[in-house]
């Protein structure tokens, strides 16, 4: 194995991306926990914690760029670094979603708006579960597993639609709540996008393992198309 040094660097990158992934997963779960408990301390911690996620993201990005510049990666090595760069960015954006939910929690303060806790909780649970499995598939270069994960996005989309209708109904019944209901719509949107980005990770895994650049379509996307 003449490229032991490069392989060690790859292993280090995998460990770092898993660490970033766990930071992001925790941030999403904490952000929803802070929201449903009206716990501003948790919300502030998530909001400020995004800086550490960004820092880790840039450190990984820099390490990838240095390897591209100095090691002339080819074939699988090149796909690995290109996919890693993408995954790095996706995770950082999910961190932004958690930060956004933390900010909304702070803005809502002691608002008496009825938070759809059960639905938001479930969205976070499924989304973070997808993210966790997607990262595992990515590290193991398991394209078969990666192709199965995006189907779970259907439940997240259903939950989003349910929350949307609940919040629109509350806006209609009490226009004074429009601002706060809108904030909660953004929370649902951020959780919905978290699941979408987990799907993006799965597409990168297929690329890494097979070289195939493709979008994994979910059934809800087909349904949306039928409705147009």
């Amino acid at each position: 194995m003449p490229r032991q040094t490069l392989d060690r660097e790859f292993q280090h990158l995998q460990e770092e991306i898993l660490l970033l992934g766990s930071m992001v997963e925790q941030a999403i779960l904490d952000s929803v926990s802070g929201l449903k408990q009206h716990d501003l301390a948790i919300a502030r911690r998530v909001y400020k914690g995004d800086a550490a996620i960004n820092e880790k993201r840039f450190a990984i990005e820099n390490a990838i760029l240095v390897l591209i510049a100095t090691q002339q990666p080819m074939a699988h090595d090149l796909r690995f670094l290109a996919a890693m760069l993408e995954v790095d960015t996706e995770l950082e954006r999910i961190g932004d979603y958690a930060k956004g939910i933390g900010k909304i929690t702070i803005l809502l303060g002691e608002s008496n708006i009825n938070i759809p806790v059960r639905e938001l909780d479930r969205m976070a649970e499924v989304g973070v579960g997808m993210l966790h499995k997607a990262l595992s598939a990515f590290i193991n270069e398991d394209s078969d597993l990666a192709r199965t994960i995006p189907a779970e996005d259907d439940e997240v989309d259903d939950l989003y639609n349910r929350i949307y209708h609940l919040l629109v109904a509350s806006m209609i019944s009490n226009p004074a709540l429009i601002d706060h209901a809108n904030y909660l719509l953004w929370v649902a949107h951020n959780l919905e996008r978290t699941a979408d980005r987990a799907t993006n990770l799965c597409e990168r895994t297929v690329f890494l393992a097979t070289g195939e650049l493709m979008e994994i379509e979910t059934s809800s996307e087909d349904d949306e198309l039928d409705e147009i």
Binding site: M1, P2, R3, L6, P73, M74, A75, H76, D77, L78, R79, T210, G211
Partner: peptide, 19 residues
């Protein structure tokens, strides 16, 4: 194609410097 997604394992090992 050869340098991003070679079809043969030996090509892969060679262009990535592992062989």
């Amino acid at each position: 194609q050869i340098f991003t997604r070679p079809k043969n394992r030996q090509t892969e090992d060679y262009v990535t410097g592992r062989f």
